[in-house]
Measured scan of single mutants.
Amino acid sequence: SSGAIIYTVELKRYGGPLGITISGTEEPFDPIIISSLTKGGLAERTGAIHIGDRILAINSSSLKGKPLSEAIHLLQMAGETVTLKIKKQTD
């Protein structure tokens, strides 16, 4: 049976990049997913974020019904501590 787990990851960026690339579309209900991780970057080092994971919220702002451009804007405005709500498929 296919299921999913949902969890929250807190990234402290200390002025540096998060080390993630996200992808999606401008269709508001398409998923926003992690499309790549910078090798040795902040997100990869947590061990908790993987390519293909879906981002449900950024700093408690839900991405439900929001296009990719809004998600990118939220990441850019997120500040030093970025909290990502992640949904991972478990097959």
Rank of each mutant, 00 (worst) to 15 (best):
F29I: 09
L63W: 09
E10Y: 07
M77N: 10
D53H: 04
T46V: 06
E70V: 12
G19L: 00
G15C: 08
F29P: 14
G19P: 02
L11K: 10
T38I: 15
Y7P: 01
R13K: 14
G3A: 09
Y7D: 10
T21H: 11
K66V: 13
D53F: 00
G40V: 06
L11S: 01
Y7M: 15
T8R: 05
L56S: 00
I6G: 04
E26R: 08
I55E: 11
H73L: 12
I5H: 14
A4V: 09
A43M: 03
S69M: 05
I6Q: 03
T81V: 04
I51V: 10
K12F: 05
K66C: 08
P31N: 12
S60G: 13
L11T: 03
G15R: 10
E10I: 06
I55M: 10
E26S: 12
E26D: 10
G41K: 03
A4Q: 10
I20K: 00
I20Q: 01
I5K: 13
Q76T: 10
T46M: 13
E44K: 02
G41H: 01
R54Q: 05
M77A: 12
I6N: 09
A78Y: 03
G52I: 00
G47E: 09
I58D: 04
S2R: 10
Y7E: 15
S2K: 14
K66W: 01
A57Y: 07
S2V: 03
V9R: 03
R54G: 02
S23G: 13
K39C: 05
G40R: 04
S69G: 05
G3T: 14
L37N: 02
I6R: 06
L56R: 02
I5M: 15
E26T: 08
E70N: 11
G52P: 04
S61R: 14
V9I: 10
S2T: 14
P67A: 08
D53I: 01
S23H: 14
S2A: 05
I32W: 01
M77D: 12
L37T: 02
P28N: 07
S69D: 06
E44S: 09
Q76Y: 09
G16T: 06
R13L: 07
L18R: 04
E27A: 07
E44R: 03
G19R: 03
L11H: 03
P67T: 12
I22E: 03
I5G: 15
S69K: 10
S61G: 07
I32K: 03
M77K: 14
T8Y: 07
S1W: 04
E70S: 13
D30E: 14
G15Q: 14
I6V: 06
S36W: 00
V82I: 09
I58N: 02
S61L: 13
Y14S: 15
K64V: 08
E27W: 08
M77Y: 08
N59K: 00
T25K: 06
L18Q: 00
T81I: 12
E70P: 02
S23C: 04
S69L: 04
L37S: 01
I5P: 15
T38D: 15
T38Q: 05
G47I: 01
K39T: 09
A78N: 07
S61K: 11
A43C: 06
P28R: 08
T21S: 09
G15Y: 05
L56H: 01
I55Y: 00
V9K: 00
L56N: 02
G65C: 08
T38L: 06
I51T: 15
R54T: 12
K64C: 09
I55A: 00
S60D: 12
L11C: 00
E27H: 12
A57V: 03
P17R: 08
G40D: 12
G19Y: 00
G15I: 07
M77H: 11
G41A: 02
I20R: 02
I5N: 14
N59T: 01
K12Y: 00
F29L: 13
G3H: 13
E70T: 11
K12W: 04
A43I: 01
P28H: 08
A57I: 00
E70L: 11
I33C: 14
Y14G: 11
D30Y: 05
N59V: 03
F29H: 10
L37C: 05
P67D: 04
A57S: 12
S60A: 08
I33Q: 06
S36K: 13
D30I: 03
L18D: 00
G3I: 11
L56W: 02
G15M: 14
G41T: 05
A78R: 06
R54K: 08
E10S: 08
T38K: 10
G40Y: 10
R13H: 11
R45F: 03
Y14A: 14
L11Y: 04
L37A: 02
S69Q: 07
D53Q: 00
G15T: 15
P17S: 13
I34K: 00
M77I: 15
G3R: 07
E27D: 12
G16V: 01
L37R: 04
E27Q: 12
R45T: 09
K64I: 10
S61P: 01
L11Q: 01
M77S: 11
I34Q: 00
G40T: 02
S23T: 13
G65Y: 06
I58W: 04
G24A: 06
I32P: 12
G40Q: 06
R54V: 08
I34W: 00
S69Y: 03
I32S: 02
R54H: 14
Y7Q: 15
F29K: 12
T25F: 00
K12T: 07
K39S: 10
K66G: 02
P67I: 06
A4C: 15
T8E: 03
E26N: 11
S69W: 11
P31H: 08
F29M: 13
I6S: 11
N59D: 08
G65Q: 06
D30W: 09
Y7N: 13
S1N: 14
Y14E: 15
P31M: 08
L18W: 13
G19T: 02
G19N: 04
V9D: 00
G19D: 03
S23M: 07
K66M: 12
L37F: 04
T38W: 12
P17T: 15
R54W: 10
Q76I: 03
R45G: 12
A4I: 15
I58H: 06
N59F: 02
I6L: 05
P67F: 02
E44M: 06
M77F: 09
Y14C: 13
A4Y: 14
R13W: 02
K66F: 02
E26V: 07
G3Q: 14
G16Y: 07
I22C: 10
L68S: 07
G41M: 02
G79V: 06
S35V: 07
L56P: 01
G79P: 15
L11A: 00
G47R: 12
I32F: 08
S1H: 10
R54M: 13
N59C: 02
G79D: 08
G47D: 04
G65A: 11
T25P: 01
I34A: 03
G40I: 01
S36D: 15
G52C: 03
P67K: 11
I22S: 01
L68R: 09
G19K: 02
G47Q: 14
S69C: 07
F29D: 13
A78E: 09
T8V: 08
G65N: 11
T25C: 12
G40N: 14
S61M: 12
I72N: 12
V9M: 05
A57M: 12
D30Q: 11
L42Y: 09
A4G: 15
F29T: 12
S23W: 04
S23A: 06
